[in-house]
Write a protein that binds this DNA or RNA. Structure first.
Lengths: 128, 128
DNA sequence: CTCAATGGTCTGATTTTTCATACTGGGTCC
DNA sequence: GGACCCAGTATGAAAAATCAGACCATTGAG
Protein backbone atom coordinates (compact mmCIF):
# COMPACT_ATOMS: atom_id res chain seq x y z
CA UNK A 1 0.00 0.00 0.00
CA UNK A 2 1.30 3.39 -0.95
CA UNK A 3 0.64 5.77 1.87
CA UNK A 4 3.41 8.30 1.94
CA UNK A 5 1.83 11.10 -0.05
CA UNK A 6 -0.19 13.55 1.97
CA UNK A 7 -1.99 16.30 0.24
CA UNK A 8 -1.63 19.69 1.90
CA UNK A 9 -4.43 20.51 4.29
CA UNK A 10 -6.05 23.91 4.46
CA UNK A 11 -6.61 25.48 7.84
CA UNK A 12 -8.72 28.19 9.31
CA UNK A 13 -6.88 30.72 11.39
CA UNK A 14 -8.00 29.36 14.71
CA UNK A 15 -8.53 25.71 13.96
CA UNK A 16 -6.84 23.37 16.38
CA UNK A 17 -7.61 20.01 14.82
CA UNK A 18 -7.56 17.19 17.30
CA UNK A 19 -6.48 19.34 20.19
CA UNK A 20 -8.21 20.17 23.41
CA UNK A 21 -9.09 23.69 24.40
CA UNK A 22 -8.09 27.06 23.04
CA UNK A 23 -4.47 26.62 24.09
CA UNK A 24 -3.94 23.53 22.01
CA UNK A 25 -1.65 23.32 19.05
CA UNK A 26 -2.54 22.43 15.52
CA UNK A 27 -0.20 19.65 14.69
CA UNK A 28 0.01 19.29 10.97
CA UNK A 29 0.15 22.97 10.19
CA UNK A 30 3.01 23.05 12.62
CA UNK A 31 5.28 21.09 10.37
CA UNK A 32 6.03 24.08 8.16
CA UNK A 33 7.32 26.10 11.08
CA UNK A 34 9.20 23.12 12.41
CA UNK A 35 10.94 22.57 9.12
CA UNK A 36 11.78 26.25 8.87
CA UNK A 37 13.61 26.43 12.16
CA UNK A 38 15.00 22.97 12.67
CA UNK A 39 17.51 21.46 10.32
CA UNK A 40 21.02 20.50 10.88
CA UNK A 41 22.48 23.84 12.02
CA UNK A 42 19.62 26.31 11.91
CA UNK A 43 19.03 26.79 15.61
CA UNK A 44 22.74 26.98 16.19
CA UNK A 45 23.04 29.70 13.56
CA UNK A 46 20.20 31.70 15.07
CA UNK A 47 21.72 31.42 18.52
CA UNK A 48 25.05 32.70 17.26
CA UNK A 49 23.54 35.56 15.30
CA UNK A 50 21.79 36.86 18.41
CA UNK A 51 25.11 38.43 19.26
CA UNK A 52 25.11 40.47 16.09
CA UNK A 53 25.76 40.22 12.35
CA UNK A 54 28.53 37.93 11.23
CA UNK A 55 30.34 37.16 8.01
CA UNK A 56 30.12 33.77 6.40
CA UNK A 57 33.63 32.74 7.27
CA UNK A 58 33.32 33.78 10.88
CA UNK A 59 30.08 31.88 11.22
CA UNK A 60 31.78 28.84 9.74
CA UNK A 61 34.59 29.09 12.24
CA UNK A 62 32.13 29.15 15.13
CA UNK A 63 30.39 25.99 14.01
CA UNK A 64 33.08 23.33 14.10
CA UNK A 65 32.11 20.42 11.91
CA UNK A 66 29.87 22.28 9.51
CA UNK A 67 30.64 21.90 5.83
CA UNK A 68 30.82 24.96 3.65
CA UNK A 69 28.11 23.53 1.47
CA UNK A 70 25.89 22.78 4.45
CA UNK A 71 26.30 26.23 5.93
CA UNK A 72 25.53 27.88 2.61
CA UNK A 73 22.42 25.78 2.29
CA UNK A 74 21.14 26.37 5.79
CA UNK A 75 21.74 30.09 5.54
CA UNK A 76 19.93 30.26 2.23
CA UNK A 77 17.04 28.37 3.77
CA UNK A 78 16.91 30.69 6.74
CA UNK A 79 17.06 33.69 4.43
CA UNK A 80 14.29 32.31 2.23
CA UNK A 81 12.10 31.97 5.28
CA UNK A 82 12.88 35.51 6.35
CA UNK A 83 14.62 34.49 9.54
CA UNK A 84 18.03 35.87 8.65
CA UNK A 85 18.97 38.69 6.32
CA UNK A 86 21.80 38.29 3.85
CA UNK A 87 23.83 41.37 3.04
CA UNK A 88 26.27 40.91 0.19
CA UNK A 89 28.78 43.68 -0.42
CA UNK A 90 30.21 44.12 -3.91
CA UNK A 91 33.81 44.06 -2.78
CA UNK A 92 36.88 42.10 -3.62
CA UNK A 93 37.32 39.73 -1.93
CA UNK A 94 33.56 39.30 -1.51
CA UNK A 95 32.01 40.01 1.85
CA UNK A 96 28.66 38.65 2.96
CA UNK A 97 27.11 39.37 6.30
CA UNK A 98 24.22 37.61 7.93
CA UNK A 99 21.99 39.02 10.62
CA UNK A 100 18.71 38.10 12.31
CA UNK A 101 15.49 39.62 11.02
CA UNK A 102 12.68 40.49 13.38
CA UNK A 103 11.28 37.00 12.82
CA UNK A 104 14.63 35.59 13.87
CA UNK A 105 14.75 37.73 16.97
CA UNK A 106 11.21 36.68 17.81
CA UNK A 107 12.34 33.07 17.98
CA UNK A 108 14.06 33.82 21.26
CA UNK A 109 11.11 33.21 23.60
CA UNK A 110 10.69 29.76 22.11
CA UNK A 111 14.39 29.05 22.30
CA UNK A 112 14.41 30.08 25.93
CA UNK A 113 11.57 27.70 26.72
CA UNK A 114 13.44 24.99 24.88
CA UNK A 115 16.52 25.77 26.88
CA UNK A 116 14.62 25.63 30.16
CA UNK A 117 13.21 22.26 29.19
CA UNK A 118 16.66 21.03 28.25
CA UNK A 119 18.16 22.14 31.55
CA UNK A 120 15.44 20.25 33.37
CA UNK A 121 15.52 17.05 31.37
CA UNK A 122 18.80 16.72 29.54
CA UNK A 123 20.05 14.18 32.05
CA UNK A 124 17.50 11.71 30.77
CA UNK A 125 18.14 12.22 27.06
CA UNK A 126 19.71 9.22 25.41
CA UNK A 127 20.57 10.80 22.06
CA UNK A 128 24.32 11.39 21.73
CA UNK B 1 40.01 18.34 4.17
CA UNK B 2 38.13 16.08 6.50
CA UNK B 3 36.14 18.23 8.85
CA UNK B 4 32.94 16.40 9.66
CA UNK B 5 33.94 14.76 12.90
CA UNK B 6 33.35 16.81 16.00
CA UNK B 7 34.42 15.49 19.30
CA UNK B 8 31.86 15.94 22.04
CA UNK B 9 32.34 19.05 24.10
CA UNK B 10 31.93 19.11 27.83
CA UNK B 11 29.91 21.89 29.41
CA UNK B 12 29.52 23.40 32.80
CA UNK B 13 25.97 23.72 34.01
CA UNK B 14 25.71 27.43 33.37
CA UNK B 15 28.06 27.93 30.49
CA UNK B 16 26.62 29.83 27.60
CA UNK B 17 29.47 29.62 25.12
CA UNK B 18 29.42 32.38 22.57
CA UNK B 19 26.22 33.89 23.87
CA UNK B 20 25.52 37.28 25.35
CA UNK B 21 24.13 37.74 28.81
CA UNK B 22 22.52 35.36 31.26
CA UNK B 23 19.52 34.80 29.02
CA UNK B 24 21.57 33.47 26.16
CA UNK B 25 21.40 29.95 24.89
CA UNK B 26 24.21 27.47 24.67
CA UNK B 27 24.10 26.36 21.12
CA UNK B 28 25.97 23.12 20.80
CA UNK B 29 24.62 21.56 23.94
CA UNK B 30 21.25 22.41 22.54
CA UNK B 31 21.53 19.89 19.76
CA UNK B 32 20.75 16.97 22.01
CA UNK B 33 17.45 18.46 23.06
CA UNK B 34 16.71 19.45 19.49
CA UNK B 35 17.29 15.95 18.25
CA UNK B 36 15.16 14.51 21.02
CA UNK B 37 12.06 16.53 20.17
CA UNK B 38 12.31 17.15 16.46
CA UNK B 39 12.29 14.35 13.94
CA UNK B 40 9.78 13.52 11.37
CA UNK B 41 6.67 13.06 13.52
CA UNK B 42 7.76 13.69 17.10
CA UNK B 43 6.15 17.04 17.72
CA UNK B 44 2.99 15.85 16.01
CA UNK B 45 2.88 12.82 18.29
CA UNK B 46 3.37 14.91 21.39
CA UNK B 47 0.63 17.29 20.31
CA UNK B 48 -1.79 14.43 19.78
CA UNK B 49 -0.95 12.74 23.05
CA UNK B 50 -1.78 15.91 24.97
CA UNK B 51 -5.37 14.80 24.68
CA UNK B 52 -4.68 11.60 26.52
CA UNK B 53 -3.19 8.13 26.08
CA UNK B 54 -3.68 6.45 22.73
CA UNK B 55 -3.06 3.05 21.23
CA UNK B 56 -0.61 2.51 18.41
CA UNK B 57 -3.25 1.96 15.76
CA UNK B 58 -5.26 5.00 16.74
CA UNK B 59 -2.16 7.17 16.70
CA UNK B 60 -1.36 5.83 13.26
CA UNK B 61 -4.81 6.70 12.03
CA UNK B 62 -4.43 10.27 13.25
CA UNK B 63 -1.18 10.83 11.39
CA UNK B 64 -2.05 10.34 7.75
CA UNK B 65 1.05 9.54 5.76
CA UNK B 66 3.09 8.02 8.54
CA UNK B 67 4.54 4.58 7.91
CA UNK B 68 4.12 1.87 10.51
CA UNK B 69 7.86 1.52 10.68
CA UNK B 70 8.36 5.26 11.07
CA UNK B 71 5.78 5.55 13.82
CA UNK B 72 7.30 2.64 15.70
CA UNK B 73 10.71 4.24 15.44
CA UNK B 74 9.65 7.70 16.50
CA UNK B 75 7.68 6.36 19.45
CA UNK B 76 10.61 4.25 20.56
CA UNK B 77 12.83 7.30 20.34
CA UNK B 78 10.43 9.40 22.35
CA UNK B 79 10.13 6.64 24.92
CA UNK B 80 13.91 6.27 25.16
CA UNK B 81 14.18 9.96 25.89
CA UNK B 82 11.48 9.73 28.54
CA UNK B 83 9.05 11.97 26.71
CA UNK B 84 6.35 9.36 26.22
CA UNK B 85 5.55 6.28 28.28
CA UNK B 86 4.86 2.99 26.57
CA UNK B 87 2.39 0.68 28.27
CA UNK B 88 2.21 -2.78 26.75
CA UNK B 89 -0.59 -5.08 27.89
CA UNK B 90 -0.09 -8.83 27.65
CA UNK B 91 -3.33 -9.45 25.85
CA UNK B 92 -4.39 -11.10 22.69
CA UNK B 93 -4.47 -9.26 20.37
CA UNK B 94 -1.65 -7.13 21.78
CA UNK B 95 -2.49 -3.68 23.08
CA UNK B 96 0.05 -0.93 23.54
CA UNK B 97 -0.80 2.49 24.83
CA UNK B 98 1.31 5.60 24.68
CA UNK B 99 1.03 8.60 26.96
CA UNK B 100 3.02 11.72 27.74
CA UNK B 101 5.38 11.68 30.68
CA UNK B 102 5.91 14.78 32.77
CA UNK B 103 8.78 15.70 30.47
CA UNK B 104 6.39 15.45 27.55
CA UNK B 105 3.80 17.60 29.27
CA UNK B 106 6.49 20.13 30.09
CA UNK B 107 7.16 20.60 26.40
CA UNK B 108 3.91 22.51 26.10
CA UNK B 109 5.20 26.00 27.00
CA UNK B 110 7.79 25.68 24.26
CA UNK B 111 5.26 24.37 21.79
CA UNK B 112 2.99 27.27 22.57
CA UNK B 113 5.77 29.75 21.92
CA UNK B 114 6.47 27.96 18.69
CA UNK B 115 2.83 28.15 17.75
CA UNK B 116 2.69 31.86 18.49
CA UNK B 117 5.71 32.42 16.33
CA UNK B 118 4.18 30.37 13.56
CA UNK B 119 0.91 32.29 13.67
CA UNK B 120 2.86 35.51 13.35
CA UNK B 121 5.22 34.48 10.59
CA UNK B 122 3.84 31.50 8.73
CA UNK B 123 2.78 33.70 5.84
CA UNK B 124 6.42 34.29 4.99
CA UNK B 125 7.57 30.70 5.23
CA UNK B 126 8.55 29.25 1.90
CA UNK B 127 8.89 25.62 2.91
CA UNK B 128 5.97 23.51 1.69
C1' DC C 1 54.94 35.29 -10.97
C1' DT C 2 52.78 32.70 -7.36
C1' DC C 3 50.01 32.18 -3.56
C1' DA C 4 46.31 33.19 -0.25
C1' DA C 5 41.83 34.82 0.82
C1' DT C 6 36.43 35.11 0.16
C1' DG C 7 31.89 33.09 -0.54
C1' DG C 8 30.30 30.50 -2.84
C1' DT C 9 28.89 26.47 -6.98
C1' DC C 10 29.43 21.88 -9.14
C1' DT C 11 30.41 17.00 -9.32
C1' DG C 12 30.43 12.32 -8.21
C1' DA C 13 30.64 9.25 -4.40
C1' DT C 14 29.19 7.63 -0.06
C1' DT C 15 26.22 7.46 3.82
C1' DT C 16 21.73 7.78 5.88
C1' DT C 17 16.82 7.74 5.68
C1' DT C 18 12.74 6.10 4.24
C1' DC C 19 9.95 3.10 1.80
C1' DA C 20 6.85 -1.13 0.46
C1' DT C 21 6.34 -5.56 1.36
C1' DA C 22 6.26 -9.82 3.80
C1' DC C 23 6.22 -12.08 8.17
C1' DT C 24 5.01 -13.22 13.34
C1' DG C 25 1.62 -15.34 16.90
C1' DG C 26 -2.41 -16.55 19.26
C1' DG C 27 -7.22 -15.80 19.51
C1' DT C 28 -11.67 -15.14 17.14
C1' DC C 29 -15.00 -15.32 13.48
C1' DC C 30 -17.00 -17.86 9.45
C1' DG D 1 -9.44 -24.69 7.24
C1' DG D 2 -8.72 -19.87 6.20
C1' DA D 3 -8.88 -14.87 6.99
C1' DC D 4 -8.42 -11.12 10.08
C1' DC D 5 -6.79 -8.43 14.08
C1' DC D 6 -2.73 -5.98 16.48
C1' DA D 7 1.87 -4.14 17.18
C1' DG D 8 5.35 -4.70 15.75
C1' DT D 9 10.24 -6.87 13.12
C1' DA D 10 13.02 -8.08 8.98
C1' DT D 11 14.51 -7.13 4.43
C1' DG D 12 16.16 -5.23 0.38
C1' DA D 13 15.58 -1.54 -2.63
C1' DA D 14 15.03 3.26 -3.68
C1' DA D 15 15.53 7.99 -2.53
C1' DA D 16 17.50 11.76 -0.10
C1' DA D 17 21.13 13.91 2.56
C1' DT D 18 25.72 14.83 3.05
C1' DC D 19 30.46 14.63 2.05
C1' DA D 20 35.32 15.86 0.04
C1' DG D 21 37.43 18.06 -3.27
C1' DA D 22 37.88 20.87 -7.44
C1' DC D 23 36.77 25.15 -9.44
C1' DC D 24 35.62 30.37 -10.06
C1' DA D 25 36.88 35.38 -10.24
C1' DT D 26 39.43 39.17 -8.31
C1' DT D 27 42.82 41.60 -5.62
C1' DG D 28 46.74 42.31 -2.72
C1' DA D 29 50.99 40.58 -0.64
C1' DG D 30 55.56 38.75 -1.19
Amino acid sequence: MKNQTIEPRVYDEDECAGCTGPEAIDILRFQRAIRAITGKWKIEIVCILVEGPLRFGELRRRLPGVTQHMLTEQLRDLANNGIVIRNAFAEIPPRVEYELSQAGIDLMPMLREMRDWMLKYEHQLTAP
